[in-house]
């Protein structure tokens, strides 16, 4: 990678290669925990922490690890940080943990974390790797909050648990199936904006 400003790396995760809307990676939590803004936000925070720490760790030991065993080594590092997050949330954020305990543990299998470790952190120095992790994590958080806002507002007429509309305009949005509709419609809408306003290609990548 040539000289690229830190801001560019950071922004890349937020918009250019937004993990959820653009790379279409790690969609499971994007649908699963976003029936409310609060859960989406807290899940995003957990992922943000894990991604930053994993990128930092991988970058630190990148010259030390033989390429032959890098994937198992990365998996182990990810699992370690997820365990730490899980233990800390289990002790200090009880309410959240009760609701999303399983999904916190599943961060370990998120393709986005492994893919950033492999694609970026294994080839870059400490600071850029950290910024990449933060950017990607924040991009993820942003996406979850956006979906959470859409679903909670339309489905329950409230935001972060505070009742605003006093009615439930589209109850289906908070139901299990609503997550898929919300995702599909939001993605389509963002593509449309991208094409009309920014003149981009406006196509979602394949999805892995």
């Amino acid at each position: 990678m040539k000289k690229v400003s830190y801001w560019a790396i950071f922004k890349n995760g937020l918009f250019g290669e937004n993990p959820v809307f653009r790379l279409a990676l790690s969609l499971c939590p994007a649908v699963a925990v976003t029936s409310g803004v609060k859960n989406g936000f807290l899940m995003g925070v957990a992922v943000f922490f894990v991604m930053t720490m994993v990128n930092v760790t991988v970058s630190l030991i990148r010259s030390f690890i033989s390429p032959k065993v890098r994937i198992p080594a990365y998996m182990f590092i990810i699992a370690t940080w997820v365990t730490v997050t899980d233990l800390v949330m289990g002790a200090y954020a009880r309410d959240v943990y009760k609701e999303m305990g399983l999904y916190i543990m599943l961060i370990v299998a998120f393709a986005i974390v492994l893919s950033r470790a492999e694609v970026f952190a294994s080839k870059n120095k400490l600071i850029p790797s950290m910024i990449d992790g933060m950017g990607m994590g924040l991009g993820f958080l942003l996406a979850l909050v956006l979906i959470g806002i859409t679903r909670e507002f339309l489905g329950k007429g409230s935001l972060w648990g505070y009742d605003i509309l006093h009615t439930r305009p589209l109850l289906i949005m908070v139901l299990p199936t609503g997550g898929f509709f919300a995702m599909g419609l939001l993605m389509g809408f963002l593509n449309w904006i991208d094409r009309k306003v920014f003149g981009g290609t406006g196509a979602s990548s394949g999805g892995h």
Partner: peptide, 8 residues
């Protein structure tokens, strides 16, 4: 390789 993995 083994040593580095064990260290991790």
């Amino acid at each position: 390789i083994t040593l580095s993995l064990v260290a991790i």
